[in-house]
Amino acid sequence: MGQSAAQVEAGGGDSSADGAGRGSAGMAPLISRALLVGVSVSAATTIAGFLMYVILGGGGYPPGVFPVAIGSVLSGVVAMRPFAIIDLGLLLLILTPVFRVAVGIVGFAREHDSTMVAATSYVMCMLILSFLLGKAGG
């Protein structure tokens, strides 16, 4: 992964023309890496949880029960319950696109592109709103 990311950074050098050729190509390595980190950490956590589930022969909860709230996932992780660790990995996966949007806001702000900062911030607000609505209606 290291050398391919370096290639892109070398290739992305033409973005100095501020979006003349490739719009916002300078941001691409940043976004790509944010996604890679999110996906890798989530996959590693999920695999660890699943291995524990197989080795221990259970999820660490009564049959049919698994944590569905952030608080109970975290307390389950502290207690090393396999299903809680799997769920932590899944939550990290769900949060990866949200993290990517946040990185996008920072990236556009660095390019002083106020229109795109506004657009991306709006998307972030919609995501936060959806999580709040989900809590209320879920």
Binding site: V68, A69, I94, T96, P97, G134, G138
Partner: peptide, 15 residues
Amino acid sequence: GVTAAASAGVYFARG
């Protein structure tokens, strides 16, 4: 992913 994340929280909380 972003569109799905907007509804994933609900599905997760519902179990």
